[in-house]
């Protein structure tokens, strides 16, 4: 299962999450959070082996087009409509170390802001050649990359006239179950970012800026696709150097 057998596995507990940096659970500007936020305090506990460990996903499970949303749902010879972009970056941990072998999954609306989902009723058209999902596994430097079309802005029933900025959802699986993270990537310069109640759940402007991918002109492919760079940081791990461990632990 593991592609990382030459790497010494780490067994330290993860740094405590900075829950002032993340959004709180109850954020009434984002209406659905009102009834879906716990009211009792979380029970805090230093990570045990149940959270320090996690499964490994092999590169072998990834299909050839899994990271090419322009083609992975398209009919042969056709492709998705929209602004062609490459999104790439690194998955690091808080210590700045690359997270190799991380499973990165992503999903998004099409160029018109329409999701391919049966619950979705927005009147913008479905693109018959666009599914909207992709995945890849980071290499030994923590790098990932995928090709897609830039998603459109999307209206949603929250406030009377709320629109999501263009965004791509990311799900990241690092090396431990406690690192599990789902987030959203936004695009540099989009004025919708600062109007969005979901973005606004995050209290600190610097944390929001961590979700905004800059245009990466250097990696833009002439006559093909512009590039955006989006680095992702997962929780770091404590060194086990000084931890007292009982026999058999």
């Amino acid at each position: 299962m593991s592609d990382l057998t030459n790497r010494k596995p780490e067994t330290g507990a993860f740094f405590a999450r900075d829950r002032e940096w993340h959004a709180p659970a109850f954020t009434p500007g984002y209406k659905t959070s009102v009834l879906r936020s716990p009211q009792r305090a979380l029970l805090s506990l230093d990570g045990t082996i149940s959270e320090i460990t996690g499964p490994v996903f092999g590169h072998s499970m990834i299909g050839e087009l899994d990271n090419d949303l322009i083609h992975n749902f398209a009919k042969p010879g056709e492709s998705a409509i929209g602004e062609r972009i490459v999104v790439h970056g690194r998955v690091l941990d808080e210590r700045g170390r690359p997270v190799a072998g991380a499973l990165v999954e992503f999903w998004q609306a099409n160029a018109g802001g329409r999701y391919r989902h049966k619950k979705e009723t927005y009147l913008a058209a479905i693109d018959p050649n666009f599914g909207g999902c992709g995945r890849c596994i980071t290499d030994e430097h923590g790098q990932y990359a995928f090709r897609t079309v830039r998603p459109g802005a999307y209206p949603w029933p929250n406030g009377v006239n709320d629109w999501r900025p263009a965004h791509i959802h990311f799900s990241i699986f690092g090396h431990g179950f406690a690192q599990r993270l789902i987030t959203q990537m936004y695009f540099e310069g989009d004025p919708m970012i600062w109007k969005c109640p979901i973005v606004g759940t995050i209290p600190d402007k610097r944390a929001i800026e961590q979700l905004i991918a800059p245009l990466d002109w250097g990696n833009t492919i002439p006559m093909d696709a512009r590039a955006y760079k989006f680095d992702i940081v997962l929780r770091g791990r404590r060194s086990t150097m000084f931890e007292n461990r009982m026999e058999g632990n």
């Binding site: 740094f15 999450r17 900075d18 940096w21 993340h22 959004a23 984002y30 959070s33 690091l92 941990d93 808080e94 210590r95 700045g96 999903w107 999701y115 989902h117 619950k119 979705e120 959802h169 799900s171 993270l181 789902i182 987030t183 959203q184 979901i198 973005v199 759940t201 995050i202 610097r206 944390a207 929001i208 961590q210 979700l211 992702i232 940081v233 997962l234 929780r235 770091g236």
Partner: peptide
């Protein structure tokens, strides 16, 4: 140290 990427909701179309 770097800061952890902040979480966002998975949304209805997860």
């Amino acid at each position: 140290y770097l800061k952890e990427t902040p979480s966002q909701t998975a949304g209805p179309y997860v």
